[in-house]
Design a protein around this nucleic acid. Structure first.
Length: 110
DNA sequence: GCCGTGACGAAGC
DNA sequence: CGCTTCGCCACGG
């Protein structure tokens, strides 16, 4: 069987996030069938920086639409990237998060 | 090889 | 209504 690890699976889903859209760690975990492993998804994102093709980790935020990962990007890099894609971010909070929310369980389910 | 920690999330108290 | 605890998995010390 394939050597697909949780990380690889996370990367695969994250790379399918359309531009201008965002998703949550829990959503990815849920899509993988391990919604309780949302922490591992975040951990995977940490390693995503060494993954190739690069993973748009800046499009992955927490359930609140809060840029919790921006601290790991360094400064406001994450917000810059999101705004460059048309995502409004105020005070580390994504605006219209529920509209921009890209749920793999829904988008990839069909 | 055990313990602590982490980009989360939901449930419990 | 807000803080605490548990779950999950991987990795560093």
């Amino acid at each position: 069987m394939a050597d697909y690890n949780f990380f690889d699976n996370v990367y695969d889903v994250a790379r399918q996030i359309p531009v201008g859209r965002v998703t949550s760690y829990g959503a990815i975990a849920n899509y993988l069938g391990t919604k309780r492993s949302s922490r591992v998804v975040g951990y995977a994102m940490q390693a995503a920086g060494s993954a190739y093709p690069p993973v748009p980790a800046h499009r992955v935020v927490n359930r609140q639409g809060l840029l919790t990962a921006k601290a790991h990007f360094g400064g406001n890099t994450m917000q810059q990237l999101l705004e460059a894609e048309g995502v409004k971010v105020i005070n580390d909070q994504i605006q219209n998060f529920d509209k921009l929310f890209w749920d793999p369980n829904v988008e990839l389910a069909l």
